[in-house]
Design a protein around this nucleic acid. Structure first.
Lengths: 322, 322
DNA sequence: TTGTACGCGTTATCAG
DNA sequence: CTGATAACGCGTACAA
């Protein structure tokens, strides 16, 4: 396959000139530029990416690690990809299925200079393992974490959750059940804290329900519907871990003939598409801006600059499920 | 960061020796090997992947292109990744969302030598565009296609589908409705052909239903349930485009109080996990072997060898939905 | 405006 | 068993 030297030879110029034409650096006369471009066209020449990477010490590839896909993850990836591509980066996806070795492949690629940076959405290895790779290139985390080597774009959820609870209270709900996402996550802890302080503040200790954690799927919501139906004393509102759970819960109950919000108030979290579709009250959680922040952090580290991050703000979106 | 020269200097040997130690080529005395390995360990050295790629003219990275995820695609990717990793390749996923430019990113990476080969599961560009990249490296296709530059691992579906239909007939079903997957696909055409010949053979022209295409999701199956309920003259069996549609259909109908297979026989296709889970009769479609074949084809082309492909065989899996 | 020459980090050939 | 050294293909001072 043709290389830069062949182009140079055929165009009757030096490789430096060809390089200048390709990269639009420095001065090249129009005549030689045309000449060179002609040959490039003719030979269908493209620069060898590996040579460039070796020379520049960067691949302009960023890896994104996740265990699997959920709507909010897809949104994050989509948004991040947009920003990255605008800046000439390519995204490589690593779906680990929870296997630590798969995650290590990405981490090793960072170490071996095949990746310039990594975004870790949902990890499979212990934090200290991931942290040990931070010296090889910037790694940004999505989950909440306090670690000076692993910046995180998490958004504090206590107040957002509190806002949701207060809203439900203002609508007259008193027997409120909270459904929590991943049990190991700090966000879950924050929500639990918000809920228990809320219960204390309004003196709602009397209404206690089982503790539901690790509920993040539509199916979880559907199962929840069965549970709700089977209860003697039912919650009058359920604040779901995310919009998917809320959607599963709502559709399952309606299918069984119950009325939402007549029989039960339902609230989601994240404001993903399904919440819009099914008219579910939810908390808008600015995932696009988190993705942009993730990119800005990496970009800053890569270029030793200090562009400002977006300040993230949640927002209650009132719809017709409450 | 440390490079091979520094290791050589510190170990008091030449870079050639260090390279030999790393790659386990040729002869190195135990003593110097230990010495070199010690320094490598000490400096936490890893070879720079870009330099190796440049030198060897290969990256040992294979790209997989798909529009999005479905269970069967996930299975393919999982299986392919297994074979690839066993042979020292890394997989990069390109999820295009149907945008041709995203697909072009992968294709361009092949051209620029960042990818050694590509598997195209579901394309977004026209075939001739994809074909024009075949000169830069092996590309294997999943969908059915006749093209000498683009080998395909598709599996002929006419007989498999025919087998399914004959099975339904043997169980006494006469009013059989077929649901088809992607309308543009050749597989759909094959299935339509099988169905119409089947109808002719058994003289079932009297029972005709609307034509359903592009049904591949659980949701599609659920909608189908509504349609079925609303009909005056109902099919007595539905041969679904895949297991997901079958699953959606079955669960929705059971939820409405119908009995499967009492009121309706349901048959899936692919034999993915959900068919096992819900006990759905289906056609086992050996996706793992297709994935392995895809890898074998690429591997053969890359190394100019001729390993044999698996011969693919479908199989009817009788369960309790018919 | 253009060319020369070196270095990026490896592997592999050839000589010792 | 080990060491020089020439590629691999490109970008870029520095010189002209």
């Amino acid at each position: 396959m043709a290389n830069i030297q062949e182009i140079a030879r055929l165009a009757g110029v030096s490789t430096a000139t060809v390089s200048r034409v390709i990269n639009k650096h420095g001065y090249v006369s129009d005549l030689t530029r045309q000449k060179v471009l002609g040959i490039i066209e003719e030979l269908d020449y493209v620069p060898n990416a590996n040579a460039i990477s070796l020379k520049k010490g960067e691949t302009r590839q960023i890896g994104i690690i996740t265990i699997s896909f959920s709507p909010i993850i897809i949104n994050f990836v989509r948004a991040f990809t947009l920003f990255a591509e605008k800046n000439g980066f390519i995204i490589t996806l690593f779906i680990t299925n929870g296997e630590p070795e798969k995650e290590l492949i990405a981490l090793e690629m960072l170490k071996r200079k095949q990746l310039d940076a990594i975004v870790c959405l949902i990890r499979s290895n212990e934090w200290d393992v991931i942290e040990s790779y931070a010296r090889y290139g910037p790694i940004v985390i999505w989950q909440r974490l306090q670690n000076k080597n692993l910046p995180s774009v998490f958004m504090e959820q206590f107040h957002a959750y509190w806002t949701g609870l207060e809203y439900l209270h203002s609508k007259g709900y008193r027997k409120i059940l909270s459904i929590y996402p991943m049990s190991k996550g700090l966000n879950t802890k924050e929500r639990i804290r918000a809920h228990s302080e809320f219960v204390k503040k309004h003196n709602l200790m009397a209404y206690s329900f089982p503790h539901f954690e690790d509920k993040t799927l539509v199916r979880d919501g559907e199962k929840l519907a069965k549970w709700w139906v089977s209860q003697e004393v039912r919650p009058d509102a359920i604040f779901c871990a995310n919009d998917e759970v809320a959607a599963g819960l709502m559709t399952a109950l309606r299918r069984l003939g119950f009325s939402i919000p007549g029989d039960l108030g339902i609230m989601g979290f994240d404001n993903t598409e399904v919440a819009h579709l099914l008219d579910i009250t939810t908390i808008d959680y600015p995932i696009d801006q988190q993705a942009e922040n993730a990119f800005i952090i990496l970009h800053n580290k890569l270029n030793n600059i200090k562009n400002k991050l977006n300040t993230l703000t949640y927002r209650l979106v009132e719809r017709r499920s409450t």
